[in-house]
Design a binder for these strands. Structure first.
Lengths: 146, 146
DNA sequence: CAGAATGTTGGACAATATGCCCAGCCCTAA
DNA sequence: TTAGGGCTGGGCATATTGTCCAACATTCTG
């Protein structure tokens, strides 16, 4: 087994992240301007933050009540063999998978799924189960928040 | 006072949002390509989604342990008999339970748990299992966001 | 200490992406 | 039928990105 040293963001990294949290689509030029550093610096920092996994990606903030009429579920996934990394890469391609976590115990991955309709949801489930390396899965539809 | 009619996103809006959730920095051209519509369409839709407040803004997804080292888990709960309502009431009293959903299938409830330490987490698990009406449970520690 | 490695800077450049405009087309409501 | 709204494909100027580079400062290392 290999020990992966976690990248520790420094002051500048944190300022970049703070700005991106407020505006995830800010251009590198604007960020560099706001932070008082060269554009290339922001660019390389951002690359590194992504490579090291400190930043997982970019997303959009949606109004709270947006998901009212959507299908929400949690899917537990068992991965066969050592293909976890590949499976993760594949699953990250599903826009319906809102969050993806590794886990311990009976399962290997926990996915948060959101689809726009039951048929859409059904399609996603089928597709996920067809992903190479997905050995088994168990899905719980979240019916209501209580 | 003026009544603001809430803008109702249609199918295309929702597909745009789904993609942006997966990649908030995707270019309009790529989105248009992926969705099979003209770039101008995506551009005007996105403008409208922002103007109407359906979309609140863009942000970055940061690795879980960036802010604090907290323990995050999802707990599947089976309730015995017809005591679901009572169990829910009890569980809602746990500050560590961030979200609680009813569900179908093998389990009755899905709880999102966040604790500040492993020992704290352990305490919560024990207490939940002691709640009257909780017949069975299965907890998956979420190790990392991927 | 000297040299190497790393990071930042300012600048350059081509390739992309954006913002804005247009005319034409289709559909729906009046 | 007419008007309005939305989508399309296109054009065009500007902004942004990805990628280099040489120069300089700082840190690490033997």
């Amino acid at each position: 087994m290999q020990t992966i040293a976690k990248y520790i963001p420094d002051e500048l990294d944190r300022r970049i992240i703070a700005h991106l949290r407020a505006d995830g689509r800010a251009s590198l030029a604007k960020l560099a301007d706001a932070l008082g550093v060269a554009r290339g610096t922001v660019q390389s920092r951002l690359d590194r933050l992504m490579e090291t996994g400190t930043l997982l990606g970019f997303t959009v903030r949606v109004r709270d009540d947006y998901d009212a009429q959507s299908v929400h579920a949690v899917m537990m996934i068992e991965v066969s063999g050592k293909s976890t990394t590949q499976v993760i890469r594949k699953l990250r391609g599903f826009p319906e998978i809102q969050a993806l976590h590794t886990t311990n115990g009976n399962w290997d991955l926990v996915a948060n799924i959101r689809a726009t309709s039951l048929s859409d949801f059904d399609r996603v489930l089928r597709e996920v189960r067809l992903v190479d390396g997905v050995a088994n899965s168990e899905t719980s539809l979240l019916l209501s928040s209580v």
